[in-house]
Design a protein around this nucleic acid. Structure first.
Lengths: 202, 202
DNA sequence: GCGTGAACCGGACGTCATGTCCACATAGTG
DNA sequence: CACTATGTGGACATGACGTCCGGTTCACGC
């Protein structure tokens, strides 16, 4: 299967459980997320509409809007677990992804992990970023803080301003172009980014 | 005024003149472009709609759709002359922007010129790029070819793949974030890109 | 100047997605 | 087993889209 945070009620994750999620609600939520994941994968993620998700999931409008205000938030829900996993690895995982390795190695490992994320969930990331909401998400803030810290540790001047530059090549839309239009394979993209990591922190 | 290719009929630029542009057509076209430029500047460029441009220009729907299929193409029309000017300077202008200077200097000059373009016409560029059409435009193809050639001249490996990476920090949306959210001034952005240019070509 | 044909214009129209609302259904509780 | 809050489906009003058509206005040739 595709994977996704399909099996965890949002209320649980949020921490405040008013009562308990009803069985029919859970069933519908899983249908919605599964249908949405399929749609994002099949079409251009920017063209998927709430209406489409309703129909594909066999669910009424109110059911959908109850939990998700727009398609981006659906993609975000599907993405959430995987992004958190990577964030956990960055904070407390083994080096070189986690703490303990020199900045160059950690930045390179981060790039490789992000390419992996882009490869597996590029369709979701493109949907989230469409509408120019890339820099508003909490995830971007996390990547930004991580890279800024690595650059600072490497002794580079203006790490705050360079972090944005270091993250720019990880745009989902750019990755999609490199894969489809330029015909690159993931390893090539990752190797180029590894080279960039050396240049930035050297 | 704001500037823009408001005073040149598209048929003239295209080369094939069927007869001559009618006076009322020219008047309406200028009204449309002026109104659109104002709208893109005032609001979030992604939210400007064809309907809005109609109302602001005091013009009917057919008048607008006759020439422009969507808002992106209006922004593109306003942008066209300025992008061509820069392209001309890159091809045949004085060094370091034009030919004759070493790659590092030319890449740095290109970055500075692009920051200037982003500063003056960021509202238009953001509109064009919204809808993830950034890599489809002819302009991106031009910048891509230019940077690839400079990287190749500098003797870097894989210039084709690195050109995308070198261009990624020039995203209009990213520039907007750096100016508004991070509070950077144009010179800071340009200096950081100049540093990047040295690292990439060094 | 002045007829004439083509280019151009305004606005109406059908379609589609959006987000809200309400009457009803149903799962979980006592 | 009845009761209530939660969840559900679909109708509705709104607004943008893109097209079409009847009427207007301009440029050209005389």
């Amino acid at each position: 299967m595709t994977g996704g945070a399909v099996d965890q009620p949002p209320a649980f994750r949020a921490g405040l459980v008013p009562r308990r999620e009803r069985a029919d609600a859970a069933r519908n939520r899983m249908q919605v997320l599964a249908a949405a994941d399929r749609l994002f994968r099949e079409r251009d993620p920017g063209t998927v509409t709430m209406e489409d998700v309703c129909r594909a999931a066999g669910v009424g409008r109110a059911t959908l809007y109850r939990r998700y205000p727009d398609v981006q938030s659906i993609a975000l829900a599907l993405l959430d677990r995987h992004e958190r996993d990577l964030q956990e690895s960055l904070l407390r995982g083994e080096p070189p992804l986690g703490p303990g390795a020199p900045p160059v190695a950690r930045l390179t490992a981060f790039y490789r992990a992000m390419v992996d994320l882009l490869e597996r969930f590029g369709h979701l990331l493109r949907s989230v970023e469409s509408g120019s909401a890339r820099y508003g998400t909490g995830a971007y803030g996390f990547w930004f803080a991580h890279v800024r810290a690595l650059l600072a540790e490497a002794g580079v001047a203006h790490p705050e301003q360079l972090a944005d530059i270091a993250l720019a090549p990880l745009s989902a839309e750019l990755y999609h172009r490199q894969r489809t239009q330029l015909g690159l394979v993931p390893k090539e993209v990752a190797d180029r980014l590894a080279w960039l990591a050396e240049r930035l922190t050297g």
